[in-house]
Nucleic acid binder design. Structure first.
Length: 263
DNA sequence: ATGGCCCGTAATACGGGA
């Protein structure tokens, strides 16, 4: 069983590329981020014709997440609210950044962690608070779903291997700051592991390259798209691969798909 | 050594991305 995640940076702009990719890589599950479209305008038909069920949570212009699946999607939940109480969630479900469903006994969560804007900005603090909520959400979810895979665009560089030019803490480059990494470290003790790092330990493997500055040609990237899995799934994991190929196409997303394979 | 981009919405700019 293959579970892929891909920040497509607009599903309408990337529709053909995603369909072509699915034809070449008929993964069982594809989690999408930055769909950038309201639910009524999501291009459902072509993906249904390709054999996928889908659950989506979109908004106008920004954000938006989805899960495509060859098997049925069960117990679909949108946002934090189904798991956490409304008072705790507050405004944090206004932006559509999280959707979950159970597929073949595995709880799949597709996330788009906030970008964070500039260091110490309102957006930066929003991101840190969002990650705290995500921790609470996962803590509540793992009891109920021991087979859990959360994947998506974390907008976080876990460590210096995951960025072409390691950033010093005093550089305050958002995505690499100490507070963000600590927020991620608060989540992992819930018994989640970075699936990619179960198979590959060296640096130089990235999932995002800036559109500017010939970043892809220079491999000046960041590894910010991740799968975190529970021990039961770690035992079943046989590979976790970043597929750089789509970044070479014309009009690519700035992110590429990452594929987790389970036995 | 550094870096010029791309998306949607609206419009021939702007906010946002990371």
């Amino acid at each position: 069983m293959k579970i892929a995640t891909w920040n497509v940076n607009s599903i309408r702009t990337r529709q053909t590329q995603v369909l072509d990719w699915l034809q070449q890589h008929p993964v069982e599950v594809l989690c999408l981020q930055e769909t950038k479209v309201v639910d009524d305008s999501f291009p459902r038909s072509p993906f249904a014709e390709a054999g996928y069920e889908m659950c989506i949570s979109g908004q106008k212009s920004y954000n938006g997440v989805a899960i495509l699946s060859r098997s049925s999607l069960e117990n679909v939940t949108v946002g934090f609210t189904p798991i956490l109480d409304a008072e705790t969630v507050g405004i944090f479900d206004d932006q559509k950044r999280l959707i979950a469903a159970t597929v073949d006994g595995i709880r799949i969560i597709s996330v788009y962690v906030p970008n964070g804007g500039a260091y110490d900005s309102d957006k930066y603090h929003y991101k840190l608070q969002w990650l705290q909520l995500l921790r609470q959400y996962l803590e509540s979810s793992i009891d109920k779903y021991p087979n859990l895979c959360i994947c998506g665009d974390f907008n976080l560089v876990p460590d210096d291997r995951d960025i072409h030019k390691p950033a010093r803490p005093q550089d305050f480059i958002v995505g690499t700051t100490t507070a963000e990494r600590e927020a991620l470290q608060e989540i992992l003790p819930l018994d989640l592991v970075d699936a990619f790092r179960e198979f590959t330990t060296e640096g130089g493997h990235y999932s995002w390259w800036d559109y500017r500055a010939a970043s892809f040609r220079r491999n000046a990237g960041w590894r910010i798209d991740h799968h975190y899995i529970t021990p039961s799934l770690r035992d079943r994991a046989v590979a976790c691969i970043i597929d750089k190929q789509p970044r070479s196409q014309t009009k690519p997303s700035d992110h590429v798909p990452v594929i987790l394979e389970l036995k």
